[in-house]
Each structure stands twice: as structure tokens, then as C-alpha cells.
Simulated scan of single mutants.
Amino acid sequence: MKYPPLKAMATFETVARLNSFSQAADELHISQSAVSHQIRLLEDFLGETLFRRLGRYLELSDVGYAYYEAIAPALAQIQRATVEVQGQETLSVRLALFSSFAVRWLIPRLPDLQRQHPTLDLALEMMNEAPQLTDRVADCFITLLPDSRGFTTEALYTEQLFAVCSRTLWQRMQDDWAQFDWSDDAQGISPHILQHYPLLSVHSIYGQRSEDWRRWFAAAGETLPEQARLQHFSHMLLALEAARHHQGIVLTNDYMFQPAQDTDLVKLPFHALITGDVFHFACKTHRQHEPGIAMLRHWLRAQAKVAGWIM
């Protein structure tokens, strides 16, 4: 059996992963015309078109996508075997995750990761939407998907929403309702007391305006008060900033609110709402024992334990 040209396959893997001829040329340190030549060699060998150009945009053909998914793990294994024989060890890992999780929780902890694992070269791919689980995007992921074919997943955090406001607004609330004992989880105090203050709603949580507060009240067996004053935001980062500037009360979660950092904010003594979203660490099953991926997975689990998210 005649094998396809290895250089052309490696060039194809790079173009497919980066979705760009020019970026592939930069990574491979060759000209863009040389990249095009290698792709043509492989297409001629296979007798198939691997890429489609849609104006200025590039995408894999159906055959190209299937071929990439099949050969990328094999090329990675060849690279790992070569590194082992040479007595070297690569610990470069690409992690794809939600931008809010990265900015508010992961990045402040990266100095600890660097201290514990100085040989780990971590590159972050921050996404606004749930990342597609494929080696083209990253080596591993923090995702809401509990199961995906060919992937091993591990739960890190079960999301809950709780009420937060600025210290200034919290003091005002205590002054307004001095007859209540706020020290014991606000027991016996109805959540309806919050209707007297602006409620900051984030519609990206449930995809509907005011739905976060409606469900939070429902979890206490109550309805969202009709007279409640709601302000609407597209993202929790924006609503948290508004709360920080005394503009109202926001529902947030454990990775967005960090008590040690957010000293100007206060978690109110009311119930929490379990959203049903669970954040998982995910990687290809056949890659889970690669040194860099395993190192990152164990560190993330340790951080989740310190935060009290998992046992």
C-alpha cells in the first residue's frame, strides 16, 4: 500500500486546525504558496477536495473534515512517540473555555499553576459560546456538555445563582429593615423584600428577560413581584459591574463572585438557585494521559476542591 506524503498530511493538519493557509504558513515557517502546494499534493493523492473557499472564508469539505478527525490523533501520536525517543517532553496544552469563566476564575489562579507546574505551557482559547469539541479548537475544554463521543469528561462545578449587591446598598438595606435579624441566613424574611430595590437581570443565563429572577423567586415558592424594578443586561460581567456601582442586586454564581477579590460586594443571606448547568473538564479519551493534559486536569480538580465545588 502506498502511504500519503507525510509532509502534506502535516501541512493539511495545520491548515485544518488553524482554518487558515496564511496562519499555517507562519506556524510551519514556510511560504503560503508552499502550503498550497502541499495541500494540492494531498488532494491529488486522495482524489478529493479537502477545502472549500467561500469568498474570503475557508472551510473543510465534508471529506476534509472526516479525514482531519481521523488523522489528527495519529499525527499527534507520531509526534509524541518521536519526542519520547528524543528524550524530550512537550507540555504545551490548549484549553478552550467560556470567556467569563476564564476572566473571573481561571486567570487569577494561573500564577499558582505556573508555580506548581513551570514546564506547562498553557494557551487559552476563550469562547463566547460553548466550544465545539474538536482538536481543531483545543486539546481540552471546560464545557457544559456532560458526554460526547470519544471524550472523557469530569465534573468541576454545578452552577448556583445567589443574590449579590454592593456594601453601600447592603448597609442601606439593613438600615431600611432594622427590625430584621440578618445574621442567620435571613430566616423568616421573605425574598419579596428585595422588590424595594433595583434587580439587575442577565438574560443570557436563560435566554429570556427577567427569567433569572423569576426562577430565583420560584425556588422559594414565590412569584416575581409585579412592581419589581428590573434592569436588563446581556452578560453577567456587565450586571456585576452595575452592582459594584450600587445600581442594584444581581444574581451571580461562584466563579463570577470571588469574596477575596470582590471585597466591595456582599453575598446576601438568601437562598441559592441551582441552574442545572454543570461545568466539565473534557479531553479526547485517547489523550487523557498525555502529561500536559493530565497535569492540567489534576490541577483544575484540586482548585475545584479548594473552592468547595467537588469533594
Rank of each mutant, 00 (worst) to 15 (best):
Y3C: 01
P4G: 08
L6A: 11
K7E: 14
K7S: 11
K7A: 13
A8R: 09
T11D: 04
F12S: 08
F12E: 14
T14G: 10
R17S: 15
L18Y: 13
L18T: 14
S20H: 13
F21K: 13
D26Q: 11
I30T: 07
I30P: 02
S31N: 09
Q32G: 07
S33W: 07
I39R: 03
I39F: 12
F45I: 01
G47I: 02
G47S: 05
G47Q: 07
T49C: 03
G55N: 06
Y57L: 01
L60S: 03
L60P: 04
S61G: 04
V63T: 11
G64P: 07
G64K: 08
E69S: 07
I71K: 01
A72V: 08
P73Y: 02
A74P: 00
L75Q: 06
R80W: 11
Q86H: 10
G87P: 04
T90I: 03
A96I: 07
F98Y: 13
S100T: 14
S100H: 06
W105C: 09
W105A: 08
I107W: 02
L110V: 15
L110Y: 12
D112Y: 09
D112G: 10
L113T: 08
D121P: 01
L122A: 06
E125V: 15
E125S: 09
M126L: 15
M127C: 11
M127P: 00
E129M: 10
A130W: 03
P131Q: 06
L133G: 02
D135N: 13
R136C: 05
L144P: 00
L145H: 13
L145N: 09
R149V: 03
G150W: 05
G150A: 08
F151M: 07
E154Q: 15
T158L: 00
E159L: 07
C165N: 00
R167N: 10
W170F: 07
R172V: 09
M173R: 01
D176A: 15
W177P: 00
A178Q: 12
F180I: 06
D184L: 05
Q187R: 14
Q187A: 15
S190L: 10
H192I: 07
L194Q: 05
Q195V: 01
H196G: 12
V202S: 01
H203G: 00
H203F: 12
S204E: 14
Q208A: 13
Q208P: 00
S210E: 14
E211Q: 14
W213N: 07
W213L: 01
R214I: 01
R215A: 04
A218E: 14
A219F: 05
A219M: 08
T223Q: 15
L230C: 10
M236Y: 00
A239Y: 06
E241I: 01
R244E: 14
H246N: 15
Q247V: 02
I249F: 04
L251K: 06
T252G: 10
T252V: 08
Y255M: 02
M256W: 07
P259L: 07
A260N: 04
A260H: 07
L265C: 08
L268N: 06
F270R: 04
F270L: 04
A272T: 15
L273Q: 04
I274Q: 11
I274H: 11
V278P: 05
V278E: 10
F281S: 03
H289Y: 06
E290Q: 13
E290C: 02
E290K: 03
I293Q: 01
Q303P: 05
G308L: 01
W309N: 04
